[in-house]
Design a binder for these strands. Structure first.
Length: 491
RNA sequence: GCCCCCAUCGUCUAGCGGCCUAGGACACCGGCCUUUCAAGCCGGCAAUCGGGGGUUCGAAUCCCCCUGGGGGUACCA
């Protein structure tokens, strides 16, 4: 028996993977990479009714985006394939038949209606819901009748009436369940597809999975799985149930919580390196201070021992902060490359397309340290790309400046700037700083005025650099426009 | 209802019997820097360690009860 670590991420394509799903994938991946084991991807598409078109592709896409490469699975292949459960149906049927043969399972002919009535009755009597095991005790006559009725039965597992089942969870320690609280769950559905319980156990065994790292929501079904392994005489893998990631309302993550699918985070301008870093810290930590980890550091430090037991709420504010850190660490070239698509998409239509890469290269240093996500880039940089600025005249005057004096200051600035060559940051500063004194204005007041005139806002990147990037012609035009605005107001 | 898990600042967390008058981070509030914003730096606010019993010379750390939260309870995964 080999001690090689083989872990798997086994999503079902019933929706686009959200951060909780992907965090599970990440922990499996980290554990595999840390131990030098194998990371396997298996698609659990056994629920045809809930199958969502494109979901499988979204899963692969999410993993690829984060750089979580799989050693075996769809596209990668592997010696234990196929890795898509709908292509392994004969295996599950064989296992189910074996279980029936050996008396661990039995066919059940109960109709969905009967089950529903049974549950309603149980609820009315305030009794624990669960299959009443009617078909477990069919007389030979009843059985023959059921078989000839044309109903396709489901196969149910025969849970032992007595005893307890204990599993030793790597994170939570021993967990014990009374078998009496478990009902005879379905293994094979009437459509011939296996349930999660059967397929999961059969595949984990067939694929030689050594550790099952999955979300805590699975903890209560684990005794069923342990019972299955036992009935099959298979050695179960080691289990580690990961703490859940909850929405802001403390409930299980769902569409209700807004943007939760990973693909959406990419669209919102988060960097994959940041997502990996942030997700790793949801339920795992190294020490009392380290928060920023490269992928390599994560792989190097990751361990099951340091996974916490408590559910975590996904804090988007902190994610945004961390993304800002990652954004600022980027080289200008990388920032340009990554923000370009967001600018193309987010800038108003009047900005000339395609964007000049050269120009974006000049603008980028001015917005890079102000952005928390790439999607903020268009907003931050808009005035660099459009011709006409729309802003209120009141912005020019502010609280202290009279329209008259604002207008005069702008006229003098205009005259001084007109002949300025070269029009770079240092030269602009060389002209404007003395000018403030000359006009008897505080530097802040004059610079603020010019900032509004040239950018249309009170908060913008440093003025001189900004003006230099905008270019002389455009700055002069904008100052003239501002003067016009002021005169119009006074009239 | 029943079963299972969990419980430290608003949030993510450190803490695995004495280093804790509980540390870090986000957010928030000040200050510095500064032409605005952002970044950066400094400082502050913020957890009677959910409550109550034990054990111990000593408990956030161990045990029990309660409460609270979460998950499960499908021919879903």
């Amino acid at each position: 028996m080999s001690s090689e670590v083989r872990v798997r991420y086994a999503p079902s394509p019933t929706g686009y993977p959200h951060v909780g799903n992907i965090r599970t994938a990440l922990f499996n991946w980290l554990f595999a990479r840390h131990t030098g084991g194998r990371f396997i991807l298996r698609i659990e598409d056994t629920d045809i009714a809930r199958l969502v078109p494109g979901a499988t592709e979204a899963i692969l896409e999410s993993l690829r985006w984060l750089g979580l490469d799989w050693d075996e699975g769809p596209e990668a292949g592997g010696e234990y394939g196929p890795y898509i459960q709908s292509q392994r149906l004969s295996l599950y049927r064989e296992v189910a038949q074996q279980l029936v043969r050996e008396g661990h399972a039995y066919p059940c002919y109960c109709s969905p209606q009967r089950l529903e009535e049974m549950r309603a009755e149980q609820q009315r009597r305030k009794q624990p819901p669960g299959y009443d095991r009617r078909c477990r005790h069919l007389s030979p006559v009843e059985r023959t009748a059921a078989e000839s009725s044309g109903i396709t039965p489901v196969i149910r597992f025969r849970v032992p009436d007595e005893g307890q089942t204990t599993l030793s969870d790597l994170i939570r320690g021993p967990v014990t369940f009374d078998n009496g609280t478990l009902d005879d769950f379905v293994l094979l559905k009437s459509d011939g597809y296996p349930t999660y319980h059967l397929a999961n156990v059969a595949d984990d065994h067939a694929m030689r999975i050594s550790h099952v790292l999955r979300a805590e929501e699975w903890l209560s079904s684990t005794p069923r799985h342990v019972l299955l392994y036992r009935a099959l005489d298979w050695e179960p893998p080691l289990f580690a149930h990961l703490p859940m990631i909850l929405g802001p309302d403390r409930s299980k993550l769902s569409k209700r919580h807004g943007a939760t699918s990973l693909v959406e985070y990419r669209e919102m301008g988060f960097l994959p390196e940041c997502m990996v870093n942030f997700l790793a810290l949801l339920g795992w930590s190294l020490d009392d201070k380290t928060e920023l980890f490269s992928r390599e550091e994560l792989v190097g430090h990751f361990s099951l021992e340091r996974i916490s037991k408590t559910a975590a709420i996904f804090d988007r504010e902190k994610l945004a902060w961390m993304n800002g850190v990652y954004l600022r660490r980027l080289s200008t070239e990388d920032f340009v490359r990554l923000s370009l698509p967001f600018l193309e998409k987010g800038l108003p239509p009047q900005a000339a397309r395609p964007l000049s890469r050269d120009y974006v290269l000049q603008v980028s240093p001015l917005i890079q340290e102000r952005a928390r996500t790439l999607a903020e880039a268009p907003q931050l940089a808009e005035f660099f790309f459009v011709e006409d600025l729309a802003y209120s005249v009141d912005l020019l005057c502010g609280k202290e400046l009279a329209p008259q004096s604002a207008s005069e200051a702008l006229k003098v600035s205009l005259a001084r700037l007109q002949d300025l060559v070269p029009f770079d940051g240092a030269s602009i500063e060389g002209v404007l700083r003395p000018l403030a004194a000359e006009l008897g204005m505080k530097t802040g007041a004059l610079f603020g005025l010019l900032r509004v005139a040239t950018t249309g806002r009170t908060a913008a990147p440093p003025l001189f650099q900004t003006m230099a990037v905008l270019g002389k012609e455009r700055c002069l035009r904008r100052i003239q426009a501002a003067i016009a605005k002021l005169e119009q107001k006074q009239a």
